[in-house]
């Protein structure tokens, strides 16, 4: 078990973030989907910025998307990630329309391309926390 060795920053498990990451722990990528107008959204919010509804469900994403942009960190800005440089914090646009910050594994940062197809994988970084990451996929 790698749990004891994981020194990187973890998300605070509170409020809507706890809900989002709880699904990740079950290896499900779910986003809020407005019950009023049907719009998907991320980051999670209390109400729908499109229609004003407070009602939503946690709808399951197919986990497929494309690389939208990325930020490649070459100088170690956070001591907890110093061993990881260079690494890219990637914005992935899911087929459902939402975008999220994540990592794309199995590919060096300098080979990322806008529009590159990716699919979700779940990284159980500790006993309590699972991060949704992505890897390149062959286009159907």
């Amino acid at each position: 078990m790698e749990t004891a060795k994981y020194k990187r920053l973890l998300p605070p498990m509170r409020g809507l973030a706890r809900d989002f990451y709880s699904y990740c722990k079950k290896h499900e990528l779910r986003f809020q989907k407005c019950s009023g107008c049907g719009a998907w959204r991320h980051v999670p919010r209390e109400m729908c910025p499109d229609c004003g509804s407070f009602d939503y469900q946690w709808a399951k994403s197919a986990g497929k998307g494309k690389v939208f942009s990325w930020s490649t960190t070459t100088q170690p800005m956070l001591p907890q990630f110093a061993d990881a440089v260079p690494y890219a914090t990637v914005i992935v646009e899911l087929d459902e329309g939402v975008r999220m910050a994540t990592w794309v594994v199995d590919i060096p940062p300098d080979q990322l391309q806008i529009g590159m197809p990716v699919e979700v994988l779940f990284d159980d970084v500790t006993e309590d926390v699972t991060l949704a990451k992505f890897r390149p996929r062959k286009q159907a």
Binding site: R8, L9, P11, V43, T73, L78, Q80, A84, T89, V129
Partner: peptide, 13 residues
Amino acid sequence: EYYMPFGLAVPAQ
């Protein structure tokens, strides 16, 4: 909640 777990925390990033 959503950026720092992926190593992003400063404006340059």
